[in-house]
Amino acid sequence: MGFKLLSKLLVYLTASIMAIASPLAFSVDSSGEYPTVSEIPVGEVRLYQIADGVWSHIATQSFDGAVYPSNGLIVRDGDELLLIDTAWGAKNTAALLAEIEKQIGLPVTRAVSTHFHDDRVGGVDVLRAAGVATYASPSTRRLAEVEGNEIPTHSLEGLSSSGDAVRFGPVELFYPGAAHSTDNLIVYVPSASVLYGGCAIYELSRTSAGNVADADLAEWPTSIERIQQHYPEAQFVIPGHGLPGGLDLLKHTTNVVKAHTNRSVVE
């Protein structure tokens, strides 16, 4: 069995187990497998329904001669939608809004960016022009300005110390501490036991640490421990890039980060 097929099978099995364990909360999309990078042309966006009122959005972007996937989250909030992270750029984010209108038909009224990198804030200006209120932590807003990236308009308070959590509509926002970046936030959907790890969490097929220019490698494993301790009931975990899975993604990420750190020390 090929690795790609095995990865998709694991996603399907995880979703099936969740649907059985929580039949009222989960209505997993039966329309197909989780979209992969090879299936999404740059400039297009796919939506994948995880649970009743919960979707991931998947886009792709060219970077350094390669094409990478990027995940975000959409959560229903009454007759409105909360968006977590842009679709990595203005063109993708405009396509995301169009796809949401086509498939869901509810307005996106608020959006949260989970850290300051372009795959999370690139497209904020498109959201703002569409009347979406954009939010991020003060740290993310400051770092985005320093980096020359787009800056969300509103500040999220109460997320300055490791372990801080605040309720934001249908989700809980959690600051686990520094990891992929010093400002990275985690998003949890309690009604569906869905954990969105953003770039602080890796997919299972990833074996290298990737972009760690703004990471705190020493603190990252401790931050992941905080996530595990705060959300032990999480059933569906979405990484910032690639295929979702279960809580095993947290341990896998820790292993990859520690291996990278150990290699760096040896070198």
Rank of each mutant, 00 (worst) to 15 (best):
S191I: 05
G53Y: 04
A144V: 12
L97D: 02
V187H: 00
G123I: 01
H154F: 14
E147D: 11
V187C: 04
R263V: 07
A111Y: 04
F174C: 10
L5G: 08
A90H: 07
D216R: 13
M1G: 06
N255C: 03
G43Y: 05
N92K: 12
E145L: 08
I238V: 04
I58V: 07
T222H: 08
I186V: 09
I84C: 03
F3R: 11
S113G: 11
T207Y: 14
T253L: 01
V146P: 11
S139N: 13
L173E: 00
D164H: 13
V75P: 00
V132R: 01
E39H: 13
N184R: 01
E172N: 15
R141M: 14
V75A: 11
G177M: 00
P190D: 10
S161L: 05
A259L: 07
G158V: 05
L10P: 06
V171A: 08
A178S: 04
L9K: 08
T60A: 08
E157V: 13
S162R: 08
L185A: 07
I17A: 05
A94L: 12
Y231L: 03
R226T: 04
I104Y: 15
S62V: 13
F3V: 09
T140A: 10
A95V: 11
P138C: 12
L217R: 05
A209E: 08
G65E: 11
H180W: 00
E39Q: 14
D118H: 10
L97S: 03
E80D: 05
K8I: 09
T140L: 14
A95S: 07
I74F: 06
V212R: 08
G43C: 03
C199K: 01
G210A: 07
A209M: 11
A51E: 09
S27I: 10
M1D: 12
A98C: 15
T153R: 08
L243Q: 14
E172K: 10
L185G: 00
V194T: 10
G32M: 14
G32Q: 02
Y135E: 00
G163A: 05
G158A: 12
S30L: 08
D118L: 08
A200H: 02
V194G: 11
S38M: 13
A130V: 09
V11R: 13
I58N: 07
V126C: 04
Q61D: 04
V37E: 07
T36Q: 10
H117M: 00
